[in-house]
Design a binder for these strands. Structure first.
Lengths: 173, 173
DNA sequence: AGAATCATGTAAGGGGTTACATGATTCG
DNA sequence: CGAATCATGTAACCCCTTACATGATTCT
């Protein structure tokens, strides 16, 4: 799977329910995911062009009288496949978990796609493995500062695991 | 206070104990902070030049026979002041906490500077405030996905607060 | 009349990564 | 002898943010 920025998948996800023009995509994403991140309008238009160049999107240009023209985008089959593959894959980079994982959960529910509970379960498995690895490293680490860092990471992972097993598991169903 | 990237302060911090050339700075930082982040050598040299241009660093060029020449850097008074101000200020952007706060703690201990415990206490105060704000927002949020996001953030902050009050408080003394 | 919303873009710059380039010394 | 270490840089991208630019419509 190609590793594109999460914004790209968010755009693909917003087009899974039908064609939209840039401003509409922005509205949709801000309404649904505004609490997770901010989208810049200018960056969005840049990305849309780039994604079309990469074959993820198609576009048609609609000229309107008395209103500015709109460029309407839709997913290509490649774009759709790319989105669905991304959607069902848990995140293995811990730093991206917040953005990526919450965005995936959002689309599972928003698009009515089955398998959200499986994603949650797999994500739990991955985090547990990482946590165990860190715990082992901390136990054999004599240097206090490095122990402190491991402690920080382990504390973070513990909290996220509890959140996943508790709140996210319910949401993912 | 100017808001420079954390790498800049890490470099200033590594020069607080005396002049060093680029490669030495890299070694020092990787040894002490390698568990927190990675430094790219090429980026370091770019940064050093930029920082000198901004008046944070001075440099002298040492020509050596039979070895490559070295450019030896040291903090200017402005650089030192900038570092010390950064060091004693808690982080108010939650996403940067891991990098920034752990780096600050490292330098408190590494340079034998007093006030680490105060920084920990102030950081605890800030996170508690943020957490209370989020808890209030979640309580008045009807939308399940937004509640889930707030839950995630609150869980993260709770874990970090416990870590601060427990492990970091001891380390900061 | 002015502010907010609809609608789309360009340009500049910041900060980071990866790849590439060079060349000496020291260690196994 | 070859690999690791010492030592410094350039160039090309990537993604993001901010600022700037334009212009119509609708709401207050």
């Amino acid at each position: 799977m190609e590793d594109r920025p999460t914004t790209v998948y968010a755009i693909l996800g917003s087009l899974m329910s039908g064609p939209r023009h840039g401003y509409e995509i922005l509205r949709t994403l801000e309404e649904g995911l505004g609490a997770v991140w901010r989208f810049s309008a200018s960056q969005l238009y840049v990305l849309l062009k780039k994604m079309e160049g990469e074959g993820l999107l198609d576009s048609t240009f609609e000229v309107q009288e008395a209103r500015p023209s709109k460029r309407v985008y839709s997913n290509t089959p490649a774009g759709e496949a790319s989105f669905l593959e991304w959607l069902k894959t848990p995140t293995d980079h811990v730093r991206d978990l917040r953005f990526e994982f919450l965005t995936k959960l959002f689309f599972f529910r928003n698009l009515g796609i089955a398998g959200g509970d499986r994603l949650v379960a797999e994500q739990i498995g991955i985090l547990k493995e990482i946590k165990q690895g860190l715990a082992a490293k901390r136990d054999s680490e004599p240097e206090p500062f490095r122990r402190l860092i491991y402690g920080f990471r382990i504390a973070t992972l513990t909290a996220w695991l509890a959140w996943l097993e508790d709140e996210a598991a319910i949401f993912g169903k």
